[in-house]
Design a protein around this nucleic acid. Structure first.
Length: 593
RNA sequence: GGUCUCUUAGCUCAGCUGGAUAGAGCAACGGUUUUCUAAACCGUAGGUCGAAGGUUCGAGUCCUUCAGGGACCA
């Protein structure tokens, strides 16, 4: 990167002028703000004490040194303590020439040597996916792509929570009043059918509690003694005892759910290299807890329950195994961590899980450290914020959820209506329209969810539809389509016979080229923070820079042949980066829209 | 009781390791189409960056306290 050369030269200048020894990485170079002239800026305030001169004079002296010693510099200007540096036209033309045909521009191909496993999605099998799951899935998919682009070897997995009391609730309700209903007979997606019985269970359970309370029982006791909950608990015991009828029903209903999830995953465009099932990992977890007990990493209480004492780390004592020997959430996580390491030999294991589990993952990592597990340090909780509705967070049982399938359908319907309304469907073959509507609708939804910093909670108002204008997926998709429209009309060109040094570099062209130059940095930053939002912001900046250029400069009507060809290279590369960056987000870009 | 986290324009969000006059989009108002796609472009208006202290050449960014929201552990 040119910034590195620049840093090196600035360090040399400072050494030459003021006899200060600075390492290259101690020099901070920023992009020059648009309202000032220049490409990069060096701020001199931090060396004033040693230079013993005014900010203006220091910056001026460094600028003059660079002008002689830094061949890519065309000019510089000084405002207060800010040294603004303009690179030469030649530098930018050469950059474009070397880059425009590079299909992998921005991606790192030298293997980092790091293997990373990204776990995401990780649903419960008792209800369908909702908006929060969509955020999770999109984040996981995108982060995996971004890490790959940074040269890491990446695998993905999905840990399915297919056991526990919540499954038994759906199962009990279905056995009670399902009358053998199936997804086929009900005409419902499997996950929605099972979810229906989960809600049915809750309704019945609440009625029973109310009845008991009406008869004078305290609410707390009623919650434990309601027949429905007791029945669900008995189902769980039967399941753990491998009772045939229970296990068969469990398999049947889980199968329905998996079929339903598969449809939603396909629409979201996500996939996994491997599935883990908690019903398979919890026993391994129990074994490991027994090992930890043997080495006295854990301790047993009088009732037989197993605990770890984390008070030295500022946390509490944490339950690992109940007195009756049944496992808790963290038990199965301990087992799964071990399995993942064996399967993938990964030095980093990323968990895409909501921030409500921050404490849980701190505990998990500490447990692994105490047990001297080689993978303990590599555990990384990619903790993302909840999606909230105007009235608070989503709660399945209270029916305040935005269903994933409904929302997807709605987005595609809106994309369809908008496209037709704008008259954009006319020039497009009938057979391609459905795919286009899907591309635009999903583009809007995915961009909307990914552009927000993963760590932050975000607001979704179902009353307001997701925009298709401004800082949105469709805006950027549209930019791509516009460029493709130009490129369909340029004809074949042999770029090698042109010398672009004779062409002009106007402000919009320069700004676009400058943004293009930032792409590798954006990929790096997104990888460092595991934040697809960085890519969204970048793609938006690029689209804006292009649209400004598009308004100012004509490509096809340009009469100077070299200028025209230069612009063709420029927009070609722009289109490629839009497609490439959106690929990192899992968003398709259309040729026409 | 304890721990973590958030608060930037009417709304939804950017703001990189502290740097120039805090930026976008939506919503509002005004303008741009015989010229490569107007899902675009240009402009106007909108801010005490939750509050108060502190650190320093410089704080939306770092530290402390407080207020309000959210989550979690027992």
């Amino acid at each position: 990167m040119i910034q590195d050369l620049l840093k090196h030269q600035i360090a040399a200048a400072i050494k030459h002028l003021y006899q200060i020894d600075l390492l290259d990485h101690q020099i901070v170079i920023e992009n020059t703000k648009p309202e000032f002239e220049g490409d990069f800026t060096y701020v001199v305030f931090s060396i004033l004490k040693q230079s013993k001169k005014s900010p203006e004079q220091t910056a001026q002296e460094i600028g003059e040194y660079l002008k002689i010693n830094f061949s890519h510099l065309a000019d510089f200007n000084v405002i207060k303590g800010f040294l603004n540096i303009s690179l030469s036209k030649q530098f930018w033309f050469e950059f474009l020439n070397n880059t425009y045909a590079n299909k992998d521009y921005g991606f790192v191909f030298t293997h980092s040597g790091q293997k990373i496993l990204v776990e995401y999605s990780s649903p419960n099998t008792n209800k369908p996916l909702h908006l929060g799951h969509i955020r999770n899935n999109l984040l996981g998919y995108s982060v995996a792509q971004i890490l790959k682009a940074n040269g890491h070897q990446v695998n993905t997995c999905n840990l399915v929570n297919d056991r526990g009391i919540h499954i038994c609730k759906s199962m009990y309700a279905w056995m009670q009043f399902g009358n053998g209903e199936t997804p086929e007979s009900a005409g419902l997606k499997g996950d929605h059918l099972v979810g229906k019985y989960y809600v049915a269970f809750d309704k019945k359970y609440k009625q029973e509690i109310a009845a008991l309370v009406a008869n004078g029982m305290p609410a707390e006791e009623a919650e434990k003694k309601a027949p429905a909950i007791i029945a669900a608990q008995q189902l769980l015991l039967k399941w753990e005892a491998n009772d045939k009828e229970t296990v068969d029903n469990w398999k049947l209903m889980n199968g329905w759910v998996y079929d339903g999830f598969a449809v939603t995953y396909k629409k979201l465009g996500v996939q996994f290299d491997k599935y883990y099932y908690e019903s398979n990992t919890y026993i391994l977890g129990k074994d490991i807890v027994q090992q930890g007990l043997a080495t006295e990493t854990f301790f047993k209480k009088e009732d037989g329950s197993v605990w770890i004492d984390l008070t030295n780390d500022g946390l509490d004592q944490k339950l690992l195994l109940r007195g009756d020997g049944t496992s808790v959430y963290i038990t199965q996580d301990i087992g799964t961590a071990e399995l993942k390491y064996k399967d993938f030999d990964c030095e980093r294991s990323v968990y895409v899980v909501g921030n409500e589990q921050d404490y849980h993952f701190k505990v998990l990592q500490l447990i692994c450290k105490r047990m001297h597990k080689p993978y303990a340090e590599g555990i990384y909780h990619l903790s993302y914020g909840m999606v909230e509705l105007p009235h608070g967070r989503m709660k399945s049982r209270e029916g305040t959820v935005v269903d994933a399938d409904d929302l997807i359908d709605e987005m595609i319907a809106t994309a369809t209506a908008t496209t037709i309304e704008l008259g954009k469907a006319n020039g497009i073959p009938e057979g391609e329209l459905n795919h286009l509507y899907e591309t635009i609708g999903m583009g809007a939804l995915k961009y909307y969810l990914l552009k927000v910093d993963p760590k932050k909670k975000m607001m979704f108002n179902p009353e307001e539809s997701i925009d298709f204008q401004g800082n949105t997926g469709p805006f950027i998709q549209y930019t791509h389509a516009r460029i493709k429209s130009i490129l369909r009309n340029t004809g074949e060109i042999d770029f090698t016979q042109f010398d672009f040094n004779q062409t002009n570099l106007s402000k919009p062209e320069r700004a676009l080229l400058f943004t293009i130059y930032q792409y590798p940095q954006a990929i790096f930053d997104a990888g460092k923070d595991m934040s697809p939002g960085v890519i969204c912001n970048y793609a938006y900046d690029l689209a804006k820079a292009f649209n400004h250029f598009y308004h100012e400069c004509s490509v096809l009507k340009e009469e100077n042949l070299e200028q025209r060809n230069f612009r063709i290279q420029l927009v070609n590369l722009t289109a490629h980066i839009i497609k490439s960056s959106f690929g990192l987000l899992g968003i398709e870009v259309p040729e026409k829209m």
